[in-house]
Design a binder for these strands. Structure first.
Lengths: 233, 233
DNA sequence: TAGTGTTACATTGTCGACAATCGATTGTTC
DNA sequence: GAACAATCGATTGTCGACAATGTAACACTA
């Protein structure tokens, strides 16, 4: 658990964004990154005083950070016992993806129902980027993430966005543990393009069916990888 | 904002449940109760030091409690600005109920798909209790809550349960602000019974349609009450 | 008066120290 | 040797005080 001292730099990047972010949030960002990248494996205990001394801060902001991560569903806290990186069982993974399909399907229906299916430029761009990603697995993952995030954004539903954020976070955590490349970028790009086309022609039902098929495939592949690789937790 | 000193009693009720619950959680329970009962109106600022002195504790457990309530979606916290009881706009209410319909529909499909639609005794009992609730609005609300909670439980999906808990919490908050009695208990009981029957005959699609209709009606009534009564926040 | 800089205050963020709790280890008794 | 009680160490929970931040009121300038 090599947790480097946090950078005292402002965490913002956009111009003019000089908001002062509390220590706790910056620590949460850093730990989240490590969890999502697989550096902090599921089950790893996150001891407050240890993290505090490693980061050169007191326990208060560390507690704050652990609370935030709990809100993201990335850690589990038991009173008087401590906090650990959440272990993902086979069942959790399956539930996660079914939930994801449910929410994205809802997003599609909403996009069509509210007539927002004519502004799909960003989604098309994502498909193009997927096809062009070649063998760069990292780039493919990023684009895929952007595609689905855009889908949710288009639905224009704050509560949906909140829930989906939690789901996407855990999905990313799962992906980090499936190191092996999953599928052919061209196939993935084609799958997504079919979904976008169905949305564009206001055919929500077809789009949802395609999406569920796609996610169903991903579940199979991930779970396959899961049972073979390591019985984590 | 009459916040009474927290009871030092163990918060448990079940026999033998002598688990020691941290102060923060007990404070969260108390504040949640007040928010859900409408005692703490949306927009009410929750000042840490004020709550701490009122409750006779330090700020640490109060902060903890506010964090927990944030996780429930009942309060909003802005860094360096403070925490307030979440204001519910018309749009939030609409999003909330659509989300609820989505999740309960998912639960129904899952109950049917996994063949769990033969153990609906509890749901039937709820319908009976609804019909028998007469003019006791409070009792009707409680039974309604139990009905939908049971539906979610039957789906046997941990992540769904987590999400639904948040939704149910906010629904209860909305209900607390719609003081006027919404509808005839007998009608509500009949509506629910139709849904249960459809589930029992493994007809998920019909059950979901009925559910969506039912929730659609509730949305209309609540939003109607909403726009007339008070333009809260 | 409109606009700007400054100051004061209320509130949250952070810190270090102490108390409470849990699990395991050790010691004791039969 | 097994069952039970006391003890210990590790960790979280709670506390009070101080620092950092943001808002609003105020004085000042043009």
């Amino acid at each position: 658990m090599t947790t480097e001292p946090i950078t005292p730099l402002r965490s913002s990047d956009a111009l003019g964004e000089i908001a002062n972010v509390p220590l706790g949030e910056r620590i949460a960002d850093q730990l989240r990154q490590q969890i999502l990248d697989g550096e902090l494996a599921p089950g790893t205990p996150l001891v407050e005083i240890a993290l505090a001394s490693e980061l050169g801060v007191s326990r208060a902001p560390v507690r704050e950070a652990l609370r935030i991560l709990g809100l993201d569903g990335l850690v589990e806290t038991v009173p008087y016992r401590g906090t650990t990186v959440r272990g993902l069982h086979r069942r959790d993974v399956e539930e996660l993806y079914r939930m994801r399909a449910l929410h994205e399907g809802f997003a599609i229906r909403r996009i069509v129902d509210t007539g927002r299916h004519r502004d799909l430029a960003e989604l098309h761009a994502c498909c193009d980027a997927m096809a062009a990603s070649g063998s760069d697995a990292r780039a493919l993952n990023l684009v895929d993430e952007r595609f689905h995030a855009t889908l949710i954004e288009l639905a224009d539903h704050a509560l949906l966005t909140t829930f989906w954020r939690t789901i996407a976070m855990q999905v990313r955590q799962v992906m980090a543990m499936c190191n092996r490349q999953i599928a052919d970028p061209m196939v993935i790009a084609a799958n997504h393009r079919r979904i976008v086309d169905a949305i564009a022609s206001a055919d929500a039902q077809t789009a949802i069916t395609l999406l569920e098929q796609h996610i169903g495939d991903v579940i199979d592949q991930v779970l396959n990888e899961w049972s073979r690789g390591d019985a984590r937790r």
